[in-house]
Design a protein around this nucleic acid. Structure first.
Length: 420
RNA sequence: GUGGGUGUAGCUCAGCUGGCAGAGCACUGGGUUGUGAUCCCAGGUGUCGCGGGUUCGAGCCCCGUCACUCACCCCA
């Protein structure tokens, strides 16, 4: 073991788990690719102000969870804690909203960073696949995105997730409701954290975290006691009407996401196999974000799904994504002449699209056969002087031990037939 | 930032009120000089996280420290 280890809150994706991770990323991306979303990549770090203005100064993400970078002595950059602000910034910078049709539909896949105490399902570096539909106010877009996420999860075999839906109000009604809520909360005996939150962002108090009563020992607030219906009559019904009943929602008037840019439609995909965490993905409308970062009015909607948490959810449900073996044929040479010939044969097989590997390191026959077995290959290709003298190689089926001689120049055709 | 749990072989873990370092799997070699997976035999498996203390004697008790992990908080 080296004297170094992965930094706190990070982990390595090793070959044994990589197939699942890649399959999850692909499963989320596939519905987007066939629905008109274009792929975009942005830098992993941005001007720190993009996030403090976009995500919101009052959010935990910005106030205490950002990895900031110093550039020549002053803090100016931060590792991205989420993807939406960067994607919108890139779209505005490249004038995608002026050069193409609206909405501009984009998807991304990448790592995000938050400086938090790690625990199950929560890491300092984690992966999201996200989608954004920028510059249109059509509730059908909200519905489209929810359906695409639902399709992605179902294509993976995930079943026990739920979709929570709420509205956070718009420019007109939110300030009114916010003031009313603040007024209501000021009359309650709340713990110190909640008092602070009620000042900065009272809506977040609704998000089932509030403790009412004496400080930290207080009990969780009963939702029925909070004026959660203050935002009724807003376009929460939009995505519901547009989606045509294809996925089932649960109304959750306490759902308030931890990013300030959300307006109106908000939703979260939750799963109970993630330890103390519950969200595998979430999103919503962010009609005002563009203006917050200096752009024109571009009402938009988007989501991000957590790759790491989706993997945990699959594990919790016992879903195993079948990974094909990495190798079809494993070559085992006997002697120097055979090494030269079989190495060439392996190269030839690979160029024909057959997955092939070789017993490197000068192993003895027994060890080389063991390596062939462990490689997961269906066939071992064995040859020594006796075979080569006749232009043959021995092809051994490792599933049943049957071994047949094959002419060296008929190898490709024979294997293509057997591997069909 | 706060609290709980755990650190013993490559991996999963036993180890009793303090008395000689353990099991299974994995690994290496041999049984088979040209055959894996099965079977048999032999064998490394180790700063017991690290540092100090108590004791004739510490994996075990005490103090400190680090790491991992789970939870609070928050979110993907």
């Amino acid at each position: 073991m080296s004297s170094f280890q992965a930094p706190k809150g990070t982990y390595d994706i090793l070959p044994a788990d990589a197939a699942t991770v890649l399959a999850v990323r692909e499963a989320i991306a596939a519905p987007l690719r066939r629905s008109g979303y274009g792929y975009i990549e942005t830098p992993v770090f941005e001007d720190v102000n993009l996030f403090s203005r976009g995500v919101g100064e009052s959010t935990d993400i910005v106030s205490k969870e950002m990895f900031t970078l110093t550039k020549r002595g002053s803090e100016e950059l931060a590792l991205r804690p989420e993807g939406t602000a960067s994607v919108l910034r890139a779209a505005l910078q490249a004038n995608l909203h002026r050069t193409g049709n609206l909405p501009v539909k984009l998807w991304y896949s990448g790592s995000q960073y938050r400086y938090e105490r790690p625990q199950k399902g929560r890491y300092r570096q984690f992966w999201q696949v996200g989608a954004e539909a920028i510059g249109a106010e059509d509730p059908a877009l909200d519905a489209e995105l929810i359906i695409l996420a639902d399709d992605a999860y179902r294509s993976l075999g995930l079943r026990n997730f739920r979709i929570l839906l709420n509205s956070l109000g718009d420019k007109q009604c939110r300030p009114v409701y916010r003031a009313a809520l603040q007024d209501f909360l000021s009359g309650l005996d709340l713990d110190a954290d909640t008092v602070r939150r009620a000042e900065l962002n009272p809506l977040r108090v609704l998000d089932r975290q509030a403790r009412v009563g004496a400080g930290a020992t207080g009990r969780r607030a009963d939702a029925g006691r909070l004026p959660v219906r203050g935002l009724q009559g807003l376009p929460r019904a939009g995505p519901r009407a547009a989606h045509g009943g294809r996925v089932s929602f649960e109304d959750d008037t306490k759902l308030v996401r931890g990013l300030d840019y959300y307006t109106r439609t908000t939703f979260e995909f939750v799963h109970d196999g993630l330890g103390a965490q519950s969200a595998v993905g979430g999103g919503g409308r962010y009609d005002g974000l563009s203006e917050m970062i200096g752009g024109p009015s571009l009402p938009s909607v988007g989501w991000a799904l957590g790759v790491d948490r989706t993997v945990l959810a699959l594990e919790a449900e016992g879903v195993v994504l079948t990974a094909p073996g990495a190798t079809d044929v494993f070559a085992v040479p006997l002697g120097e002449e055979a090494r030269r010939v079989l190495f060439g044969a392996v190269t030839g097989l690979r160029r024909e699209g057959i997955r092939a590997d070789f017993a490197y390191g000068g192993k003895g026959l027994k060890a080389a056969m063991k390596a062939a077995d462990r490689s997961g290959a269906r066939f071992a290709l064995v040859a020594g002087e006796r075979d080569l003298a006749e232009g043959l190689v021995q092809l051994k089926d490792l599933t049943n031990g049957d071994q047949t001689p094959v002419a060296l120049d008929a190898l490709v055709a024979t294997l293509k037939e057997k591997l069909k």
